[in-house]
Simulated assay, not measured.
Amino acid sequence: MATDLYAFEALSIEGQSVPLDRYRGQVLLIVNTASACGFTPQFAGLETLHQIYGERGLVVLGFPCNQFGHQDPGSNAEIGAFCQRNYGVSFPMMSKIDVNGADAHPLYRWLTAEAPGLLGSKAIKWNFTKFLVGKDGRVIRRYAPQDAPEKLAKDIEAALA
């Protein structure tokens, strides 16, 4: 089992391999996203965090997922265009993945093992579950979907210090 985030790679929304080692020494906020969810407006708050803290070393990574109510059925190209057009997303968006089950992305298997949810559950319960990962590549905290991005600012500042 991996001990930190840097052991993983993912595909960008354009289909390019992205070794997560490229983010060594930065703070990451990893979020499973959806384009047609009640929490979809959180893209605006995530973009704000990216704009405020990006130069200090925060990287927001969005991972589209269609496992919850089929709320992200589009192609990667459609999802990317939606995020840019509706929310001005400029942080990295990755290719659509599964976050639960047999086909869950290995990164999400690791994240949920490192930071279980309520009552120790390793499952992601809904879109916009967030994981804050420190400069050392280890999970600092897991946040629920209803935790608005702006409420994470204090924890992000502490991680960046």
Results as ranks from 00 to 15, higher is better:
Cys37Leu: 11
Val133Asn: 09
Phe43Ala: 09
Asp136Tyr: 13
Phe91Leu: 03
His70Tyr: 09
Phe91Asn: 01
Arg22Ser: 13
Thr112Ala: 06
Val59Trp: 07
Gly54Lys: 14
Gln67Ala: 05
Asn32Ser: 13
Gln146Pro: 03
Trp110Tyr: 04
Ile52Gly: 03
Glu114Phe: 02
Arg109Val: 00
Ala34Met: 11
Gly88Asp: 04
Lys122Glu: 04
Ala113Met: 04
Pro41His: 10
Glu114Thr: 03
Ala77Gln: 12
Gln146Cys: 08
Arg109Asp: 02
Gly45Arg: 13
Lys135Arg: 15
Ala81Asp: 07
Ile156Trp: 03
Gly62Cys: 07
Asn127Trp: 10
Ala115Arg: 03
His70Ser: 15
Glu47His: 12
His50Phe: 14
Met1Thr: 09
Leu118Phe: 07
Ala77Pro: 11
Ala77Phe: 02
Asn32Val: 08
Gly74Arg: 01
Lys122His: 14
Gly38Leu: 13
Cys83Met: 02
Gly69Ile: 00
Trp110Met: 02
Gln42Trp: 13
Glu150Asn: 11
Asn66Met: 01
Val89Phe: 00
Pro106Asn: 00
Met94Glu: 00
Gln67Pro: 10
Leu118Asp: 07
Leu132Ser: 10
Asp21Trp: 08
Lys122Arg: 15
Asn127Leu: 07
Gln16Asp: 15
Ser12Gly: 15
Ala159Leu: 06
Gly54Asp: 14
Leu11Ser: 13
Leu5Ile: 10
Lys125Met: 07
Gly88His: 03
Ala34Leu: 13
Ile30Gln: 12
Ile97Ser: 00
Ala159Phe: 05
Ser35Trp: 13
Ala161Asn: 13
Phe68Tyr: 06
Met94Lys: 03
Glu55Lys: 15
Val133His: 09
Asp72Ile: 00
Ala123Glu: 11
His70Leu: 05
Val139Ile: 12
Pro64Val: 04
Thr129Leu: 06
Glu55Gly: 15
Asn32Phe: 12
Gly69Leu: 05
Leu61Thr: 01
Gly101Trp: 02
Val60Asn: 07
Gln84Tyr: 05
Ile140Gln: 14
Phe128Gly: 05
Glu78Asn: 04
Ala10Ile: 06
Asn86Arg: 03
Val18Asn: 08
Gly69His: 02
Ile97Cys: 00
Pro64Gly: 07
Gln146Tyr: 13
His105Asn: 06
Ala123Pro: 03
Leu107Glu: 05
Phe91Trp: 06
Pro106Cys: 02
Pro116Gln: 08
Tyr53Trp: 15
Glu55Val: 09
Thr40His: 12
Tyr53Phe: 15
Ser75His: 01
Leu132Arg: 12
Ala113Pro: 01
Lys130Ile: 10
Arg141Ser: 15
Phe68Glu: 00
Leu46Asn: 12
Tyr143Pro: 00
